[in-house]
Structure formats: C-alpha cells, structure tokens
Design a protein around this nucleic acid. Structure first.
Length: 425
RNA sequence: GGAGAGGUGGCUGAGUGGUCGAAAGCGCUCCCCUGCUAAGGGAGUAUACUGGCAACGGUAUCGAGGGUUCGAAUCCCUUCCUCUCCGCCA
C-alpha cells in the first residue's frame, strides 16, 4: 500500500514506479478519487460539526426547560439529516473504491533493481562453493529417493493427487533433521525468536502481507473460509498488526518452521516430477520488523543468515538479485538464493529474501514510536526463507549422492540423525 | 454443539440516551518542594484523518459493521473475539 501523500506530492515518480513493474499509469485516477473522497469528507464533517453543536445546545435547552428553543434546534438538525446520510455514504464509497484500487498496486522497487521480463534477467550477485565433480552421472533426487524406497509419489497421489509426496525412513528423518538444524541455527546464533503460528488464517491476514486481493488463486481455502498459509511470512508478519511498537524494541526477528500450502494454479506442467514444486511443503521462515533506517542493512543480514545454512551444509549456491519481472508483489528488493543441483545441472531457488519497506506495514497498520516522541511512523518489514526445507532435502540428496545411490549425511546434520552418516545403504 | 457472561484509554475500572474522548485509581512524563532516599504538591499523558506558518481548531473512533434518534459508550440487529458451565474431543 502506498502513501497517498507521496502520490500527491510526486505523481510522475509514482507512475514511473508502476511503469517499472509493467503497470499502467494510475496517479491521475487515484488523485481524482482522492480529491473527491476528501472533499466529501470535508463537506460531511462541516455538517456533522453543526449537528453536534446544535445537539449539545438541545441538551442544554432541555436541561433549562427551554422547550421552544429546543424544538427550533431539533427542526434545524433534522433538516441536515438526509444531506448528511448521503454525504457519508458517498464518502464511504469513494474511500472503498480508492482503497480497492490501492490494494491492487504492487510495491515500488528500488532503483538498483534490474529491469527485466523474467527470471532470465535476474542479476547474479555472488556465488559460493564449487559444484562437486562426479565420476558418475549424478541422478535427480526423485530417482535416488524412489530407488531407495524412501520417497513415494505414486502412493501419495493415490490419496492426495499430484504434487504430494510420502517420505519414509532415512529421508523422512533427513527432512526433520534439516528443519531442526535451521531453526537451531537461527535461534541460537542469528538472534531470531522461535515462533509457532496457526496454519490457517482469515482474509485480513493475507491482505496484510499482500497475497490478497490479487493472488487468491494461489492459496487453498477451507470450508470455514480460512486460508491455508502459503508461507509463515503471513503469520509472522501479522503478529503485531494494528500495534504501535516502541522503537527501542526493534528490530524484531522471528523464525518459524511451518507447513506451507500452495495451489500452484499458474504452474501447470512446471516441475511436475519430484519434490521441487509441491502443494504442501515445509519451510523455515525468517521475518524482521525494523525501523525505516534499519531495513536495508537488515536485508543483507537476513540473506546472510539464509546463506549460512547452505554454507554449513556445504552446498554450493549463488545469490541473484531479482529483476522487475520476477520480484514479488510486496517487495522493494529481493535476493534469491539458488542452490546447485547436480541432478538437474543447474541452480534452483531455495530461498527468497525481501525487504518490503512500509508496504505491508501500511496494510497492517503496524507502527512504531521513537522514545519520547509523540508521532508514530510505519515500521519496515522483511521476510526470507531460511530455507525451504523440501528443496534443501533435494539439494542434500543430489549433492551428497554416492555412486551406489546412497546418500552421505552432511557433517552438521549428523547430530540430528542420531549419528547416522549414510542413508540408503 | 447447548446455556450463559463480557469486550471502554498503557493497565485496572466507572459510566445505561444529552455540555462524555469519556470519572477515579495505577503507571508514565515534566515542574515544584525536599540534606539523600521515601513521602508530598501541581501540570500533562490515545489514534487516525483534516484545517492552519503556528498558537490552536474540526471530524471519527468506547471490539467491528449496520440501524433507531435532533443526539448513542449507553437502545436494537449482525458479526468477530474472550471467559464460565455442560457436551464432545487430539
């Protein structure tokens, strides 16, 4: 959500920001509506002021037993009524129309975000690690998993359809180990507070983070009109909605290990084999709530926290800065981390870290107040995966596979695997 | 699921149709007083929008949304949430 004042002050820049996202100019339309809205409010308020004043005089007159004056005033106020009702309704309608329009507009990206149409235009920022040399043809994760009998797509499909998986034995344990490891790292070393949130939310929560109103198709809805969370970014970011936070308490850093549910409506035919793209997956998420001054540095920090997971797992990766065609609705700048998958012979997304500025905070009415000051301002929010657990599992399987199809356990995971150092033997 | 009780400012808690944005207490801030500390006295202390250079105004908000009324924290309806008892249950 944008600040109307900024659009008023600089409509050209606002339209330019929309243009970078491939959106049509909207400033003129918005400002016309805004002007109408405010004019209606002002007019309604003038009438309300007179009504309030007269009503108080009526009370006074009645208290003094001056029935004649009371009657005269009552007649006046009742004459205002129809006009006022109409004005209030018009003002409300204009406000709703304006709000709806604003809710559909994506956040403005930073100047350094590269212009582009698709993920092909993302810019590599850095790489870490060297892809391992194989003296055999490395397999994809689903071949490895199915051969071991520990990854079962067919039986999952029998009960749930496509894009679901059953994990068993060592692979199930590996998935659990990865989630635990990530959570421990972020809570013990990176200063994040562990949180366990609901997996079902109301409309308002998804509006707050930006999934609604535009992207309802991507999420699942229950018969009780709840939504299954597509990421715990939603719940972590919504925690302090409507609150005024003491600025001294910022930044807030939360992490959660949750199930995520995505309809993948627009992804038919993409990544149909394997665990890359599932309707249900596990993710460890990081969310930060910061002051406006802190948010840029926080993005670098958060990305580093996500990278650290891969470093400790000794998985090669690269960091890319998303271009305007690939960046998400609420983000001002996003770094994707892509892990090396030998089976696919390419880097694949495993984390996405974004700074949203005050875009979500405005929707969520989440503010902060500097100590001793009267005025409040909107906080900044950030979110990032640290990491997508299912995809990390894939990366471990593919990078740590041996010629016989078994999997070596990364050093750092051994404590979480009960000392096991290999699966599928 | 059944039956009840509630949702008021940072907190506790008054207020059941009129000068109520809201008593009082607590907390907090500032000032005064005071060898120190403690106690005491005084003033201030919500949010959003809006007008104004400012001083200072206006409007809305007593969970949310509608309604009744000249006027609603107070009455009516809807809805969300919390709590108690019963039932069911991981």
């Amino acid at each position: 959500m944008f600040d109307l004042k900024l659009i008023r002050d600089n409509p050209e820049e606002f339209d330019r920001a929309l243009a970078r996202r491939g959106e049509d100019p909207r400033a003129a339309e918005i400002l016309a509506l805004d002007e109408k809205h405010r004019a209606l409010i002002t007019e309604a308020q003038t009438s309300q002021a007179r009504r309030n004043e007269a009503s108080k005089l009526i009370g006074k007159a009645k208290a003094q037993g001056n029935e004649e004056e009371a009657q005269a005033l009552m007649a006046e106020v009742s004459g205002l009524k129809d006009k006022l009702t109409q004005l209030e309704e018009d003002a409300r309608n204009a406000g709703e129309q304006l709000n709806l329009l604003m809710m559909h507009l994506p956040n403005a990206v930073y100047d350094d975000v590269p212009q582009g149409d698709s993920e092909d235009d993302n810019v590599e920022v850095r790489t870490w690690g060297t892809p391992r040399e194989f003296d055999f043809a490395p397999k994809e994760h689903f071949d490895l998993g199915e051969a071991m009998g520990l990854m079962d797509f067919e039986r999952a499909a029998k009960m749930s359809g496509s894009r679901f998986v059953i994990l068993k034995g060592g692979i199930a344990r590996l998935e659990r180990a990865l989630g635990q490891f990530m959570l421990d790292l972020h809570t013990r070393e990176h200063g994040y507070t562990e949180v366990l949130t609901p997996a079902m939310v109301r409309d308002t929560a998804l509006f707050g983070t930006g999934q609604l109103p535009k992207f309802g198709e991507d999420a699942f809805r229950t018969t009780t009109d709840h939504w299954l969370i597509p990421t715990s970014e939603v719940t972590l970011t919504n925690m302090h909605s409507g609150e005024i936070l003491d600025e001294e308490t910022l930044p807030l850093r939360f992490t959660a290990h949750s199930q995520c549910f995505r309809a993948e409506a627009g992804s038919a035919g993409r990544d149909t084999r394997g665990m890359i793209r599932q309707h249900q997956f596990e993710k460890v998420e990081m969310v930060s709530v910061t002051t406006p001054e802190q948010s840029d540095d926080e993005l670098e920090r958060m990305t580093g926290c996500a990278e650290e997971v891969l470093k400790r797992l000794e998985l090669p990766y690269r960091v890319v800065k998303l271009c305007t065609g690939d960046i998400g609705f609420s983000a001002r700048r996003t770094y994707d981390i892509e892990v090396w998958l030998p089976g696919q012979d390419k880097y694949r997304e495993i984390s996405s870290c974004s700074v949203c500025g005050d875009f979500q905070a405005r929707r969520l009415k989440m503010r902060c107040r500097p100590k001793g000051e009267k005025n409040t301002r909107f906080v900044h929010t950030l979110n990032g995966s640290g990491l997508a657990v299912g995809r990390t599992l894939i990366a471990v399987l593919e990078n740590y596979q041996l010629a016989d199809g078994s999997i070596r356990i990364p050093e750092v995971l051994k404590p979480y695997m009960g000392g096991l150092d290999q699966i599928g033997v």
